[in-house]
């Protein structure tokens, strides 16, 4: 009987101990569903995404939604103040969240968010980077990874060109961004482990 649900996609980390596991899960699901829908709407606007098979569109979204949310919601993690803002808008200290059981994943997300924000990307650059995060040909279960790979390469080329134009003296930014991809994968794996530990019995 866990008393806390330490995910900023929730309205609060506190869980009502009188509620059933199913009710807690339903409430949490209602909280994060709008953000997931936004990721899907974002994906639909990526040129070429809708031309992929429906199976592959779903596979990419299933595998990559968490990573896209980490990028989009990096601003919820404040490293200087050491706080995390939940969807209700309320801030909680990292220390408090750690005492509730959030450990390595929370610290890794803080670290990731700080480094991503330090790159000071424009909205357009961030959007294109997010598209590159989502369209990854090495996700499992793809039926036509060649098509995904072609789209991924095209998006990556466009991102490189945009970064090179906007930051002519900082060629390392593109490399730093590419290095964020395995970091996101690692955060995704850590998050999946936590999810599995938290699964609710029907």
């Amino acid at each position: 009987n866990r008393m806390h649900l330490v995910c900023p996609m929730n309205t609060s980390p506190f869980v009502d101990p009188h509620k059933s596991g199913h009710a807690i899960w339903e409430e949490f699901s209602m909280s994060f569903t709008p953000a997931v829908r936004e990721v899907v709407e974002f994906a639909k606007r990526i040129p070429g995404f809708r031309e992929l098979s429906q199976h592959d569109q779903i596979s990419l979204l299933k595998a990559g939604t968490f990573e896209v949310l980490v990028v989009r919601f990096a601003s919820l993690f404040d490293v200087k103040e050491r706080t995390v803002t939940f969807l209700s808008g309320k801030k909680y200290s990292v220390e408090m969240l750690c005492s509730m059981g959030a450990g390595d994943l929370l610290n890794s997300m803080l670290d990731f968010s700080e480094k991503l924000r330090a790159l000071d990307l424009s909205e357009e650059e961030m959007s294109l980077f997010t598209a590159v995060v989502l369209v990854s040909a090495d996700r499992s279960g793809l039926e036509n990874s060649k098509s995904v790979e072609a789209l991924q390469e095209s998006l990556t080329r466009t991102l490189r060109s945009l970064i090179t134009q906007s930051h002519p003296n900082e060629s390392a930014i593109f490399t730093k961004l590419l290095l964020k991809l395995p970091e996101l994968r690692s955060l995704n794996n850590m998050h999946s482990e936590q999810l599995l530990a938290f699964k609710v019995q029907p």
Binding site: S29, F32, V40, K44, Q57, L61, K62, L196
Partner: peptide, 27 residues
């Protein structure tokens, strides 16, 4: 529910959003 995305009900949300359906699940 060995797949984390299925565990979250993510596929259902994604599928509905992709198809443009706004209907909620009726359990």
């Amino acid at each position: 529910y060995s797949d984390p995305a299925s565990n979250l009900g993510l596929e259902d949300i994604i599928r509905k959003a992709l198809m443009g359906s706004v209907d909620d699940r009726q359990d």
